[in-house]
Design a protein around this nucleic acid. Sequence first.
DNA 1: TTTT
DNA 2: TTTT
Lengths: 163, 163, 163, 163
Amino acid sequence: MARGINKVILVGNLGNDPDMKYTQGGMAICTLSLATTSVRKDKDGQQIEKTEWHRVKLFGKLGEIAGEYLKKGRQVYIEGSIRYDKFTGQDGVEKYFTDIVADEMQMLGGGGGGGAEGGGRDFDREERTSRPAPRQAAAPRREAAPAKSNDFGDDFADDDIPF
Amino acid sequence: MARGINKVILVGNLGNDPDMKYTQGGMAICTLSLATTSVRKDKDGQQIEKTEWHRVKLFGKLGEIAGEYLKKGRQVYIEGSIRYDKFTGQDGVEKYFTDIVADEMQMLGGGGGGGAEGGGRDFDREERTSRPAPRQAAAPRREAAPAKSNDFGDDFADDDIPF
Amino acid sequence: MARGINKVILVGNLGNDPDMKYTQGGMAICTLSLATTSVRKDKDGQQIEKTEWHRVKLFGKLGEIAGEYLKKGRQVYIEGSIRYDKFTGQDGVEKYFTDIVADEMQMLGGGGGGGAEGGGRDFDREERTSRPAPRQAAAPRREAAPAKSNDFGDDFADDDIPF
Amino acid sequence: MARGINKVILVGNLGNDPDMKYTQGGMAICTLSLATTSVRKDKDGQQIEKTEWHRVKLFGKLGEIAGEYLKKGRQVYIEGSIRYDKFTGQDGVEKYFTDIVADEMQMLGGGGGGGAEGGGRDFDREERTSRPAPRQAAAPRREAAPAKSNDFGDDFADDDIPF
DNA sequence: TTTT
DNA sequence: TTTT
């Protein structure tokens, strides 16, 4: 029941290896630094380059895949939405952050393999931690991911899909 | 693990009321006829209009919402993917169809309310029927749709979401 | 010769009337405050709304059209790119801004009429001023806009277009 | 003054080398066959792949760049719009075609270099020819492409751009 | 600050 | 077949 569309599509290269963090519950939070460069011609006809560095967040299973396969320099397709955040530091100064919250990621350029999809856009906030998820917590969660046979939710049987 | 991106974004007006069909299993198939008009200037400076009529398919719950709220003339946002189909008629002639398979829909222009999301992109093909879904089959299915509290699949608990 | 894609698509409502400024040379800079609201279900099944306020910039002719036709509350489609800026205030504190630089705008919901396109993405920076463009400067510029009969640039004659 | 949005974003691989044709006036028409593959899980949990083959048209300078740099197998980003066409063959049978008319193209995966932009969406129709453009016609046209210093059209001087 |  |  959203009102409005907030959609971002990026194709760029990673400036660094993915930064992985995990919540206390073991959910992955992967942060990418992604460069997109545009070029225009100067009034003297010279090429002017401008690079934007996007901070991209991938959560959950999508973040795990990103952390496992992406590397510095790698080219990647990201689809997601823009999220603006404001924090007040201990010094009382407000700080603003803009994140791209990914809900689709695809490695480009052959080397990597396919893509991945997942992750909703807006969730409750909780303390995050940089401790890696304890094996016994995180690992079973991954394996618990069910092989969903369709994306319609639970209101259809699998043999009820007409195309 | 898709390889490639196939994404369509449309904003247009409906040429007709939605066309509703249901599978034998009771799944809704809603077909929209959606116009997008572009304008360019002629070599004589005159405005030339060109209208494309898109055949948009919405399946399952998304199709039901479309069928309930959309009407002829209504402006709508559609996000989905392109699907090309080929059928051979009884006369042996091959016929080609291009559909936009929606995975997001949003009514525009105030009158209608919010948006809806859902429906995957590619599924098995099955015979379709134009008989409305029998009450005793379809109704429970709709009600069976669980109030999913997140989109991460089943590998997180609800209280494990850090933002 | 850009390297990368930096694309934003927004559909939202204006929180205020457009803010118009003009460069010393008379170019319009229109700033919009655009809300997009997403909804998700809470772990208790309750609807949680989150609204992002996007700062959208439209330059030149596109900005003039926006300033003329858009109003507070109006629903609009915006396509553009993300631009991150950093300024150091007089207090020496760095401030960060994120803008959506529009290159397409379309009014939604009937009331307004069509759309408009224009404006490149990256240009030289120059001091901006809030004084309206002087008539004798701005007006001729607007009229000077030629009725381009195609978008291929100057390397084709008008009668050389094959479709 | 378009009414509606008709936007397609594709990332895929070429099934063949680009097919080049030229109008009598020397304008390039480049046709690509572009594959996008999506994967879903079967009801038995097996991966089901579905490949869509898009027919992408690039005109003018954009088509020339595509013809020069793209090759079979190459991965490419395409942005454009959908165009539906209907022709009646000599046998009196109507034939339907769906094209993606590109207005942006970018080579992916390192090997190729940057991207290119250009080409409007809808133009007059004219007979097309497969003869290559005569050197004396096409070559000067390419060189005649002016080094536009901005995209605002002719209504601003170059030093009138505020960012 | 919008909208439904 | 829509819409402005």
